[in-house]
Design a protein around this nucleic acid. Structure first.
Lengths: 335, 335
DNA sequence: CCGAGGAATGGAAACGGTACCAGAATGCCT
DNA sequence: AGGCATTCTGGTACCGTTTCCATTCCTCGG
């Protein structure tokens, strides 16, 4: 593996000159530049990332910390991040946070100048201590899917989304509306918790009752959603409509209902959240949030902060939108 | 940000000693080790990855090069990689290859000792030149989802999988069986191309005809699959069964069929490939391949190679399995 | 009691770049 | 022609580790 001194020697110039050529400094004559570039090409030389990083004091890589990489929505956000990062010549270190216990240490060790030039938090809800650790962090950080105090954030109004979904069903004439599935275990206020709040407020505003049985809680896993759906349909007064905290739940709910002969939307309306690509093909009504765009926007802002003022804080709320498809309809027997 | 010399000074020892403590060398007295560790803890010192990498000549990170990160199957493999890597304290640089044109340069620049300690290729089909470039590469590489000559590989027998899917339908009594959807554009022999070969051979062995119209080709995108499905169902002699090259296609095919009143499996049997998590909930018959396991196994082998002999080549074929669910049944009017 | 050998330690060289500083070359003006 | 600014260039210190070599300090056997 050849070094910058090898190139300098072969080209008959000093290492400083080669470095200037590499960094596109204007302080090199055209003749010299051409000769050096020719040698670089001939030797197939590439500067060492490690050496360059050590010298400049910053690694030429971004870091994305993702909570539960398993979800399709995380994947969409990640795609946005990767596309924008690679446009600017940055690669991305991907770190999956699965256990809530040790994410603080992991994040602290990863978001350092010798590891990455900037960090993106995807669907992370840090507690107050973690937030204050991050605001003083040496590398700039952007939070995607979660508005954090003192940290640049890309987010949506989850509560309003939950409200919109619920109001859509109320407008169709539904009165018995359930909510599936919130996970209480996560740190801080999760997006699904906010959506549930929106659901509750919409119900209250419409003067509709929410029986305890109508709000299902549990980890985000298919079997749990399946069980929750069956519990709802087993009730003496089953709901005529369900607000799902995410499209991935909505799909399972619809499937589980149809499997036991409950037709969607005739017997049960279902509305999701996210508008995954597949939602369109399944005809799923949903609240659309720009997932890919959230990643892309976050990466763009991060790159921006890195070049200008790493300490400034930018908030960016993305729009959401109600998308009505064929999984929601007026309840049977309505006018 | 404190350095090793700061620690050495505070502890009243030389930098060499601190380094030995950090690297768990036995050549440090217990007393000294304890004092140094106390100081490290007190100062919250962490060694610089960049400096360590430059000194040891290798970056403490793995690289995963993924083709078309958009697919759920790629995500599963990636999860396997991330889980195993983080167990061993490695982070992973994720590089998404979208355009086929420049992947060679990207891979060459990423799979260097100053960028990563090892590389994982996910669903990459390099041409011969790229393969020979990789076999001589300075950092060890493992290919996941594709058997490459001279490169350690994790793979399945895609042709056999295509054959198994087809034979399943033949055994059910189907004679008019179509194949959706192969993408000719990819470099080298893609898995879907091999599955199609298996399909053709099974059909030939059973003495069944394959009209040209019955094999659909195009990029892996929902709209294309949708169009292909409609073309098939519009034929004078539409197929009674479809072998899908992947579950993601099968889902769209089933959906598209049902949308125009063609019932699955009564009017049309559909079999997929992969056994994504969602396939079970949709009742999709499919050929199961261990996606998560492929990533985990690949990462494990890579870590192994890095520690032992980076130049040795290991092949590991994973098992596949026919999973019969409710999307495949005998054709109507069969005995 | 002394020398040998091993354990423990300090310090310097090396890794491969960047950035600064000093000096050389060039051009222009008087 | 000489002086001076400007452009260009070479060399070296430095980034923060690891590793190796030299040195000191023990311990033990003769």
């Amino acid at each position: 593996m050849s070094t910058i001194s090898d190139v300098a020697e072969r080209a008959g110039v000093g290492v400083g000159t080669v470095s200037r050529v590499l960094n596109e400094s204007p302080l090199v004559s055209d003749r010299t530049r051409a000769r050096v570039l020719a040698i670089i090409d001939e030797m197939n030389y590439r500067p060492s990332f490690l050496a360059r990083g050590l010298s400049t004091g910053t690694a030429g890589v971004l870091a994305a910390v993702v909570q539960r990489m398993t979800t399709p929505s995380a994947l969409q956000r990640l795609r946005g991040i990767l596309d924008v990062a690679s446009e600017s010549g940055f690669d991305v270190i991907l770190h999956n946070v699965s256990s809530v216990d040790d994410y603080r240490d992991q994040v602290r060790d990863l978001l350092r100048p010798d590891r990455c030039a900037g960090g993106l938090l995807v669907s992370i809800q840090p507690d107050d201590d973690a937030v204050s650790m991050l605001t003083g962090n040496a590398v700039p950080v952007v939070s995607i899917d979660g508005q954090l105090p003192g940290i640049s954030s890309i987010y949506i109004d989850d509560e309003r989304g939950g409200r919109m979904a619920t109001e859509h069903l109320i407008e169709l004439g539904h009165e018995r509306i359930a909510f599936v599935l919130d996970w209480e275990d996560s740190i801080g206020f999760s997006p699904t918790a906010k959506r549930r709040t929106g659901y509750r407020k919409a119900m209250a505003d419409a003067g509709l009752e929410v029986p305890d049985d109508y709000v299902k809680v549990g980890p985000h896993q298919h079997p749990v959603t399946l069980a929750a759906t069956n519990e709802l349909l087993d009730l003496d007064e089953p709901p005529t409509a369900v607000v799902a905290a995410a499209d991935s739940h909505a799909m399972v709910i619809a499937q589980a209902a149809q499997a036991r002969g409950v037709r969607v939307p005739e017997d049960l309306s279902v509305i999701g959240f996210d508008d995954l690509e597949i939602a369109e093909h399944l005809g799923l009504s949903t609240i659309r949030q720009p997932l890919y765009e959230s990643g892309a926007r976050g990466a763009r802002i991060l790159l921006d902060l890195m070049q200008t003022d790493p300490r400034s804080v930018i908030y960016d709320e993305l729009p959401i939108e109600m998308v009505s498809r064929s999984s929601s309809a007026p309840p049977r027997g309505s006018r």
